[in-house]
Amino acid sequence: MKDEGLRFIEREESLISQEEKFLIKTEFHGLSHYPSKEMLSPYFQKHIENNANENSASYQEEEYKLDNIPSWKYFKQFAVFKKRAAIFAKALAEKSIPPQDIKNLNAYDLIALLKNYNQKHDIANFETAKSKFIKYFIQHHEVDYRNYMLENKAVILYALKNKGIELDLKKNHHAYEEFIEKNIILMKTKGSVPPLFNLHHKRPVKDSNSNENLSMANNYKNLCLILESPYHNMLHLFDTNILGKTIFNRKVKRIELPEDLIFFGGFSRKFQIYRQNENNYSDILTQVINKKKKQK
């Protein structure tokens, strides 16, 4: 495994809070649902119950200093939330939450406010980190992905069969190729994870304890498209957590994938795709510079 770039790593890491993890999940999956009411702060629950006069808002969005909300320090680490600071302030004003009380709000309250505001004003939800990654992957590696799927037709058909799905190749000789093309179209247009694959967080979300940069958890460098069965399942079966003295000081042992690995379809390097766009970009830049030099 060492030769193929997989490393069994032991780290000292500390857990992240549920609020931090919730924001990572929301950035990854989006705002399809409200958080559970039990997760809301007692202040906000009470405010919802009492606040029937929604239209009598007497506060301006400028009055809200979001830094006074304890969990805003987590929100502002995510570009997707940071650039919606004005919407959060508008949502607070719309719900007539006194500016001096926002210190009582938690991360779940803010997400509930954002979803409600988007729903009410017909604002499209932000694009999820999952969808962004898939679009990024297929934009840069469509040829590699198609080649992998075509070269490993037997493996993919077997995997489908193991799921109880059989493509009718006798009836339609191009059924498999059509299956690939449909996948690619959905990856490009909707950013959908293709069937049989999943996204793997190389450094697990529970250990995203870099308080200064929570958004690294869903960064494309930390994600990898991987065959769900057997590889993704297997990687997590190897997770070993050795507790330290406290839950904030523990050792974690697991297989970690290289940072530039973007697709894992097998242990051999020929079944893997590495991020090369940066290299390609610098190659292209070098080629352009050289071409200009020649022209001169």
Partner: peptide, 14 residues
């Protein structure tokens, strides 16, 4: 199941 598959819910609780 709608929650698991991120199928948008129209439910509002405000």
């Amino acid at each position: 199941i709608k929650y698991l598959f991120k199928i948008e819910d129209d439910e509002q609780y405000f």
